[in-house]
Design a protein around this nucleic acid. Structure first.
Lengths: 340, 340
DNA sequence: GTGAAAGCGCTAACAT
DNA sequence: ATGTTAGCGCTTTCAC
């Protein structure tokens, strides 16, 4: 196996070169206080001259920390990864971590073998914590990580009584406000294209839809609900079904911007005019939603804030043994555009 | 910062528990030869009972190796990441590494700051090597890594005289054979939708296109070439331009399956029949190419093999100080479907 | 075949 | 403010 570049200068050599003790060098590279400005400069020069780079393994071993966190993607069908949702989340997490000096490591866990390998990686102390996204309802990886003592934060609950720390958006409220919006504008025949119903987030949005209808004294019949898997294609298909079942349809809540785009296509294909005949509201507010014609009204999740919150929860737990799990549910916001 | 779970059992405790020396335990967990079967079992049982997991930092420090390699994505516009090409490459690399016991770490390098951070990470010995994909022509990160003594393998050259180890496909030959295929079937008005021409791979494919035309005594005028950025949208736009400039067009080589899909849309929109009026050949052979109507003829790159080759080159270099760089150029293959 | 001992390069606690 | 020291948990000789 691979050997680390040998002749690399060590902290000890830097100390000798600068004519100081090892402790002082350590303080300088860690920006610790209590070092005379002149010695600090001398050490920094020695570091420069020798091209010294700290050995991270040694630092981990001595410091009992890894200075890295893993973003774990459990999506087996990792085309989902292609969705803007993921890239935005990654960007947001990367930005949030940039200040902390922690490395963000993306790891893919698609099989049980990989799951096992990641567990050893984490238990072996190579990361200080794990961030998990798109965890499916039955997945036990979070529990295993928690049991291994690793700080863990989920993006999205697996169920209504999730205990592991998580950050989630108010999906029920978001769906409810979308439906209310349509009701206020006189729409009455409102359908919904849901996400995969084995994911809690999709169930929540469906519930919000149903609740809003119920509050208005309407009944949400199953025939007004069609399931998608968040892709454009499945949105198209689901919408086509709904149109067939209910030609009188005048409003739709779609599971994502991508699904909404698919729904728009199906509506156009069926000769419906949007938003005149049918109003469409999508979840998430990405370029797609802003580019489609007409531009979509959306339920926006504050992705920037999601990343910040996840990192904050994780680091708190990393700093000190946590006595409790923390849950953050971010408000969603209706971004109204001409389509509704 | 974070502390590693304290009470974790150490190798020493396992040794005590099993009534053997530390060295023996080390041999057992590393599957080293020369341990009596009975002691091996005793040690394994102790490991089980204590729930022992090796401390990877200590192992790195003592063993001078990290047992991990980084897959570095330098794509600043990381929507590219969404393309099936990336997910397939990642899958392929993951599979190739699975046997070796190495962890694959995905790291995103979008800014200069992140570039610097990754360099320290690598020079700090947290990975044994780096695999780089989609490196743009002017990017100096590979050179910096090589200079830092880190085994490095590129997917795709940055230029014709790349020296850093790389694995690439025969893009020139692939494009040439695609054009020849069309010529043989009587097509004469052949255009091409290229990838971004600041990437060497796109230049190579363009050259193959031009060469094949030249060999047939035809001239590849610039007006028959339109540039895309590998996305569907840009493929649509480029194709629309070409149609306008050359209504007599009867064949197209597209930069990817995604671009080809865009090109198909533009052709349909213009009322052309494919493949009767116009034959379309795409690079890469992903589900998209196989689902479009008509199913596309494609220039296939052996992605499985690309991953294997990259890992092989990297590990060789990791095993022992390399005295040379190695370049592998994989043959491409024309997958003929009804569209041509 | 197995145990003992010497580091790997760093941090942090303790002296000075 | 700075030098010194004792580990962190493992791999790897080297004896036995």
């Amino acid at each position: 196996m691979g050997r680390r570049r040998p002749g690399a200068p060590t902290l000890e050599e830097v100390a000798a070169h600068a004519g100081v003790g090892r402790g002082t060098v350590s303080r300088v590279i860690n920006n610790a206080a209590g070092v005379k400005e002149s010695t600090r400069r001398a050490v920094q020069q020695a570091i420069q001259e020798l091209g010294y780079v700290p050995n991270l393994a040694a630092r981990s071993l001595a410091g009992q920390r890894a200075d890295a966190v893993a973003l774990v993607l459990t999506e087996p069908d990792w085309r989902q990864f292609a969705e803007p949702f993921f890239s935005e989340i990654v960007r947001s997490l990367g930005d949030a971590l940039a200040d902390t000096g922690m490395q963000l490591l993306l790891t893919l866990v698609r099989s049980d073998a990989e799951r096992q390998r990641f567990l050893e990686f984490a238990r072996g102390g190579r990361v200080d914590g794990a961030l998990l996204v798109s965890v499916h309802d039955g997945d036990l990886l979070p529990d295993m990580l928690v049991e291994a003592g690793l700080p863990t934060v989920l993006l999205g609950r697996r169920s209504g009584d999730e205990y592991v720390s998580y950050v989630d958006a108010d999906n029920v409220g978001g769906a409810r406000s979308a439906v209310s919006h349509l009701l206020k504008r006189g729409r009455r025949a409102i359908a919904t294209v849901t996400g995969p119903l084995d994911m809690h987030v999709a169930q929540c949005r469906l519930r919000g839809y149903q609740e809003a209808l119920a509050m208005a004294g309407l009944r949400g019949e199953p025939s007004w609900v069609a399931e998608s898997d968040f892709t454009e294609e499945s949105g198209r298909r689901a919408m086509a079904e709904l149109i067939e079942r209910h030609p009188e349809i005048d409003g739709v809540i779609a599971a994502s911007d991508t699904t909404a785009a698919g729904a728009l296509q199906a509506l156009h294909a069926a000769g419906r005019r949007v938003p005149e005949d049918v109003a469409v509201i999508g979840f998430d507010d990405f370029p797609l939603a802003q580019q489609t014609k007409p531009r979509l009204t959306t339920v926006r999740q504050p992705l920037e804030e999601i990343g910040r919150a996840m990192v904050r929860l994780l680091l708190e737990e990393v700093e000190e043994p946590a006595v409790a799990w923390h849950h953050v549910i971010l408000r969603t916001e209706l971004v109204v555009r001409e389509s509704a």
